[in-house]
Amino acid sequence: MGVISLRLKEKDLERIEELSRQEHKDKSTIARELLEYGWEFLMVRYYKEGKLSQEGLSKKLDISISEAIDVLAKLGIETPIEYGRLPERI
């Protein structure tokens, strides 16, 4: 795991500390989770804007296409492929 040092606004630090208390997790874990959520949000937005295909989304999120469809469904985003039409894995 790499290490990065960065400066955060006071409000961002307060948010991390608040989540740290609420979730009973250390601040580093919270920061990593927020980065992961932010990455997922950005990739889903790219998908919605047509900048990523379902396959591209699944690769960027490092998940299967069916898992990517689940992520989109949880966010209320329709997909052109239905589960019954997905190819079976060998």
Rank of each mutant, 00 (worst) to 15 (best):
R89N: 07
G56V: 04
K48L: 15
L42Y: 14
D26T: 05
K48H: 14
K48W: 10
K60Q: 06
E55Q: 12
E23G: 02
K60I: 03
E82K: 15
I69R: 01
E55P: 03
K51P: 01
A31K: 00
D12R: 07
G56D: 01
I4E: 11
E36S: 12
V71L: 05
S64N: 03
Y47F: 14
M1D: 08
R45H: 14
V44E: 03
R89S: 09
M43A: 05
V71Y: 03
E55W: 08
S53Y: 04
K51L: 13
R21W: 04
D12E: 14
S58E: 04
R15M: 09
R7I: 13
G84L: 11
K27C: 00
E40W: 04
Q22Y: 06
E49S: 11
G38V: 00
R85Q: 15
E14N: 10
S20I: 00
S66R: 13
L34Q: 05
R15Y: 12
S66F: 04
S58G: 00
L34Y: 06
E88I: 06
L57K: 05
R7A: 15
R21E: 09
D62V: 06
L52C: 06
K11V: 07
S28C: 02
E49V: 06
K9L: 08
L86V: 07
P87H: 03
L75V: 12
E49M: 14
I65N: 02
K11E: 14
L6I: 10
D62P: 01
L13D: 07
M43R: 00
I16T: 00
R89I: 07
K74R: 14
E55D: 10
P80L: 09
V3F: 11
S58W: 02
G84A: 14
G84H: 11
R89F: 05
K51E: 13
E18D: 12
G38R: 03
P87V: 04
